[in-house]
Simulated assay, not measured.
Amino acid sequence: MARASLAESVFEEILERIISGTYPPGEFLPSEGELAAATEVSRLTVREALKKLQAQNVVQVRRGLGTYVNPSAQWTDLQAILRSATAASASPDVSLRLLEIRRMVEIGAAELAALHATDEDLARMEDANAALQAAHQAGDLDAVTTADLAFHEAVFRASANPFIPVILGPLGKLLYSMRRETSSFLEVQKHALEHHALVLDAIRTGDAEVAGKAMQAHINQTYDDYEHFIHHNDQHQEQR
């Protein structure tokens, strides 16, 4: 048990160094002996930690060469991926990848919501939109972000598919950070209010195609907002 605990600690330390860029993707880790000295444990404990990293495809062993760090896109453990993404949350690539996930999941969720939404689901969406309107008028950015996400969560619940919230649930922290960043612009808040109302009306029709198109228009607007208000602004600041 003691060695297992030590191996877990070493695993965490090596993973943190990989995420921080001390051991960057595309390069080899120090030897087992060097890692053992750096972490003050035995080589056997380091070997166990490396086996776990290898099982998650964070690293791969190349015979005769050493242990190579894989790009995070090849990792297979969700928690490790989330830790890496959170550390790089300011990266435009992370925001765009999140938008891609939202497009894939949320359009389908809206289609299902049109078929399955109950009066309670519709009321939950209305409440979220009312909260968003109130937060917008009060200039409360945190409340705006919370209400924005609450509307989408209500759509997920209305889909009657319990797996949909599970898919995006672990991404909550990243989604909140991204949405808060874009929602800091009043025009983006207005776009959200307009599109949420359109999505709700579309779901009320009971027509999956209509609801899917309304959500697609909303996600497309979110892409445009990100490009206009965030990505271009970041580029401008880099050029100054």
Rank of each mutant, 00 (worst) to 15 (best):
A131L: 10
R63Q: 11
A4I: 06
N161V: 11
V94T: 01
E227P: 01
S89C: 07
A158T: 04
N220V: 14
T76N: 07
T22V: 06
A85Y: 13
Q235V: 14
I14V: 07
S159G: 13
Y176T: 14
Q239T: 15
E120A: 14
V61E: 10
T182D: 09
A211I: 05
E181H: 13
I14K: 01
D142S: 02
L65W: 09
R180Y: 01
L175G: 12
E16C: 09
D121I: 09
G21V: 00
P24K: 01
T222G: 14
A150G: 02
Q216H: 12
D140R: 05
E100C: 05
A117Y: 13
R3N: 10
L141R: 15
A135T: 12
Q189H: 08
A128M: 02
A38L: 10
G64R: 04
T22H: 07
T145R: 01
E194P: 00
F185R: 10
N57F: 08
E32I: 08
Q216Y: 11
S9M: 14
N70F: 04
P170G: 05
A113Y: 14
P162R: 07
S159W: 11
A49N: 03
A128Y: 05
L29C: 03
P24M: 04
W75R: 03
A131E: 12
A150N: 01
V41E: 09
R17D: 09
E13L: 13
A150V: 02
H232L: 14
A4S: 09
L115E: 15
L6D: 15
A2S: 12
T39K: 11
V210E: 11
F28R: 07
M104A: 14
L29A: 02
L149R: 13
E194S: 08
Q189M: 08
E48G: 00
V105M: 13
M125D: 00
D225L: 04
L198N: 08
L35T: 07
L132G: 05
S42K: 03
A7F: 02
Q133G: 09
R43I: 06
T118N: 07
N161D: 09
D93G: 14
A4Q: 10
G108S: 08
K213D: 10
I203C: 02
Y176G: 10
Y223T: 13
Q56D: 08
S184N: 13
H231A: 12
H218D: 13
Q239W: 14
V144E: 10
V210W: 06
Y223E: 15
A138S: 01
E194M: 07
H136T: 15
E187A: 06
A80L: 02
R83H: 12
T118A: 11
N220E: 15
P170W: 05
A131V: 00
M178Q: 15
V59K: 06
G64L: 02
V199F: 01
R17C: 03
H116Q: 15
L44V: 11
S20W: 01
L15Y: 05
P25I: 06
A192V: 10
L65G: 06
R180S: 00
A217E: 12
N57R: 11
E13W: 10
W75E: 04
E187T: 03
H196M: 08
